[in-house]
Structures are given as C-alpha cells and as structure tokens.
C-alpha cells in the first residue's frame, strides 16, 4: 500500500479574523498538496481563533456558507480537516471540525465536551454536539474526528474505534500551562496530552493524529507539539513546541491490520457488557428501576445496612447488597 502522507498544519490563527484565516488555510492547503500530502489537518478553530467570547456569533458560518464551500472546493484529490464556529439552523453555535474531501464537505463533527472550568468558558458561548460517528473517507478507511476536550473522555476514542475508525484525528487549541520543571517536557499540559494519545493509539490499535495550534490569544499561549502516533502507541512524529509550521509524516495504513492481528484488543472488546453496565449505572443515577436480572455480588451474610433490590431490608440470609446497591454505614 502506498504510504499516506499526513500534513499537520500547526498554525497561529488571527483571533476573529475570518478572512485572514481563510487565506492562510488556502495557502497551507496548497503547500501541503505540493508536498504530496493526502491528508491535511488544521487545528481547532483554525478559521476563527479560540478565545472568541462574544465574537463567536460574529464569525459563525453555516455549513452551506459559500466561504466554507469555496475552501472545500480546493480539496480535489485530497482530504482535509478544518475547524470553525458552526451556526445551526436553529442558531445554536458549535465548535465544529469538518472533513473536506474531493471538493465537498463530507462530514461535520460538533465538539461534544465543552470545558467550562479553570481557564475555559466554552459552554457559556457554545452548544455541545450530540453525535459521535465515524466517516468513510476517500482514504479507504473510516476516520473518527474529535475536538480537543473530546479526547479527555474515554468513551470518545473507544466509541470511534468500535464504530470502525482506524484513524483518530484530534484537532486542538490546547492552552499551555503549568511550567513546573518536573514535567517531562517542561509543560504540564504537553506531558498529559502525550500520555493520552499514546494510550489511545495503543488501546484502540489505531493511528492517532493530533493537531494543536500555536500562537497566543489574549493571555493564553498554545503549545503546538502536534503528533502522529502509530497503532502500537509509538510516536512517529512530534512537532516542536510553539513553532508555527507545516509538518509532513508518512504512515503505512497497513500497520493497523498488522497491529490488530497481533494484538486483537478490539476483537476482544465487550461493548454489550459495557452497554449493560452503562444502562445500570444510568438507572442508578436517575433512580429508576434496577436491572432485576443482575446477579448479586458476593458479600458477607447480613452485611450491615444491606438493602434489597427495592430498597427494603433484605430477608435473604445470604443476601448482601445487590449489584448497584451501596451499603450505607
């Protein structure tokens, strides 16, 4: 199989300046094409900048926006992932990543998890997406898209892999912080991300592509460090921290098959088990009926405060708390 050349565009968008960022995307796309790339990945909100606040509504685009269509038109024979503020028909705003292929918008992923803690305030300005699907790419494989914080939730890479993804793409605007010298790379954020991406690649036995922006918005600086990780968890490429640039990496998509044959983790996944337990957990959280069919856990007879499935005192001398019931002390 012909190796796939991936171009990571570690750029610095201009905050709120759509025209300048569109022009920058077109230039980088052309440069990547010239460099022989088959997949070009731009960072989260590369078309708008990150720290938008109330500007979000002013730079939002509908999927049928001619500016997006024009950008898509430049992807003949190419795949590209770009990110922007999407305005839905009902005027909700999303942080979206789109897969552009062969001149059209093939797929849009809306950021699922909007961090609203610490230095983040995304939920104030954006709506969370609620679909997590892979997309069949012109590359001949299924691709899973995720935006930044989406990757801080285990279910995202797992679901995408189960849905058939062999290539997971995370586009980010990750602000650098925690400069403590104890960290492997001198930046706490970068150290955490590297751990995550190697772990996900290995556990999903998929390629992981991470494209993080550089530059500054207001007081926060974005650290770059974009990466491509092989299905074995090995980092094939790590871009420098903070440097703007277009970096190309060649990957053998056939590595996915080799890895999965040798290490059949995905074959051995138990989605039905996961689903059953998730249903139970949800039921417990919402106080709905528990799954009566579930087996009781082993526990000492007459455990203090043990209660039966319906919340009454248990009469069964062998009965401990059933699964999902907590013993209160």
């Amino acid at each position: 199989m012909q190796p796939l050349r991936i171009a990571l565009v570690q750029l610095s968008p201009r905050l709120g300046d759509l025209e300048a960022n569109l022009a920058q995307h077109r230039e980088r796309l052309a440069a990547a094409r010239l460099a022989g790339a088959g997949l070009v990945v731009f960072p989260e909100l590369g078309l708008t900048g990150y720290q938008l606040q109330d500007l979000a509504a002013e730079v939002a685009m509908r999927i049928d926006d001619p500016r997006l269509q024009d950008l898509a038109a430049e992807t003949g024979g190419l795949s590209a992932v770009i990110s922007f503020v999407e305005e839905a028909d009902d005027h909700r705003l999303f942080i979206s990543a789109a897969l552009l292929e062969d001149g059209a918008i093939r797929f849009v992923h809306r950021k699922l998890f909007l961090p609203t803690y610490g230095l983040f305030d995304e939920r104030r300005f954006f709506a969370p997406g609620d679909r997590l699907r892979t997309v069949a790419s012109r590359l001949g494989i299924k691709v899973g898209l995720a935006v930044c914080e989406d990757f801080w939730h285990l279910a995202v890479p797992e679901t995408l892999a189960l849905d058939g993804a062999q290539l997971l793409i995370n586009v980010s605007s990750s602000p650098g912080r925690d400069l403590a010298a104890i960290h492997e790379v001198g930046l706490g954020t970068a150290a955490s991300w590297r751990t995550l991406m190697r772990t996900y690649a290995q556990l999903t036995t998929s390629f992981v592509v991470f494209c993080n922006r550089v530059g500054m918005d207001e007081t926060i600086s974005f650290w770059g460090g974009s990466e491509v990780i092989a299905p074995s968890g090995e980092a094939l490429f790590t871009a420098p921290l903070f440097d703007e640039g277009l970096y190309t990496v060649d990957v053998e998509l056939g590595d996915v098959r080799r890895e999965r044959v040798g290490l059949p983790l995905l074959r051995d996944e138990r989605p039905e088990l996961h689903l059953r337990e998730l249903r139970r957990i949800l039921a417990e959280r919402t106080g709905l009926d528990l799954d009566e069919a579930s087996e009781p856990l082993d526990s000492p007879p007459g455990a203090p405060g043990a209660v039966g499935p319906k919340g009454g005192p248990t009469g069964d001398p062998k009965g401990g708390p059933t699964r999902g019931q907590r013993t209160r002390r």
């Binding site: 650098g176 400069l179 403590a180 010298a181 104890i182 001198g186 600086s221 921290l241």
Partner: peptide
C-alpha cells in the same frame, strides 16, 4: 522550579 526555556519562549511571544 520552572522550565525557564519555555517561560522565555511563552513570555517573548
């Protein structure tokens, strides 16, 4: 203790 190289880089930017 901080990584002074990164601090210089971020502050210059």
């Amino acid at each position: 203790a901080i990584d002074t190289g990164i601090a210089q880089r971020v502050i210059a930017g």
